[in-house]
């Protein structure tokens, strides 16, 4: 038996919004410690990893590990039926072929229950090694979203170069070129830790997709190391995260 209750549907809506542009379907792995999800996009260029620890939930019960294969489009349709301030309870019996979502209005005067058919998804699991990133940058999530949007105007490829002087985003195409550089700020909005400078090229389309997670967090963490995927991490309060990994482009 699995049961998890969140005080607000809004955060669940935001989490699904952050996933559904990259993934059509995904499997939530529920255990007594919380919910994990990991999946590559269809083109196998990026990987998204979601972690929600049980402390994130108002109520959490999971007697036995259970995998819930969900169609994210269908889940979005169900979530549209709920108000952001409704409480939501997700329930599934052991070996169930459906999941139940119950919404309760803030004043408790309205309840609505929906059933969603579960999918049997073959999912590859990849072991994500602990990586020591040579450059770790924290910046406002809205700033990162703005940079990704502005870069996309110029080119499909974005070069991210990080050194002690700052983090620089560059794109150049037929129209011209764009360079945006952020330095560390004394107020701490932007922090930049650099062991070794790194410069890597990435597909801007994916970076823009990651910024769908912007409403979830004030700050985004970016991790860069030579010849490994870029890390873009959005914390979910103090109880979890969405991490996006993006494979770099390399010179042919």
């Amino acid at each position: 038996m699995f049961e998890a209750r969140l005080a607000s549907t809004l955060t669940l809506k935001r989490i699904v919004d952050a996933l559904r542009e990259i993934l059509n379907q995904s499997t939530l792995d529920c255990s007594d410690t919380g919910i994990q999800m990991q999946a590559m996009d269809n083109s196998h260029v990026s990987l998204v990893s979601l972690c929600l620890r049980k402390e994130y939930f108002e109520k959490y019960k999971c007697n036995r590990n259970i995998s819930l294969g969900l169609d994210l489009k269908s889940l979005t349709k169900v979530l549209k039926c709920a108000n952001g301030d409704d409480a939501v309870t997700i329930k599934a019996a052991d070996k169930a072929d459906k999941v139940e979502l119950s919404f309760e209005s803030a004043g408790k005067e309205r309840t609505a229950d929906y059933e969603l058919r579960l999918l049997n998804l073959d999912q590859e699991h990849l072991a994500i090694p602990e990586t020591e990133y040579n450059c770790v940058v924290h910046m406002p999530a809205t700033e990162f979203a703005r940079i990704c949007r502005d870069m996309a105007t110029f080119s499909e490829s974005v070069v991210i170069a990080c050194s002690k002087e700052g983090i620089k985003f560059s794109a150049s195409g037929e129209m011209g070129a764009a360079n945006i550089k952020l330095s560390e700020t004394t107020k701490g909005e932007v922090s930049i830790q650099v062991d070794e400078p790194v410069a890597l090229s990435f597909a801007g389309r994916y970076l823009s997709t990651f910024t769908r997670a912007t409403p979830l967090a004030e700050k985004v963490k970016i991790g860069l190391a030579p010849d490994v995927p870029l890390l873009v991490e959005y914390p979910i309060e103090d109880y979890g995260y969405i991490r996006y990994y993006l494979a770099p482009k390399v010179d042919d």
């Binding site: 590559m40 072991a127 090229s201 990994y245 494979a247 482009k249 390399v250």
Partner: peptide, 14 residues
């Protein structure tokens, strides 16, 4: 011309 690598090549299957 930069070539896109696959994410799967960086992580091992479990």
């Amino acid at each position: 011309q930069a070539k896109q690598t696959s994410i799967a090549s960086f992580f091992t299957k479990v």
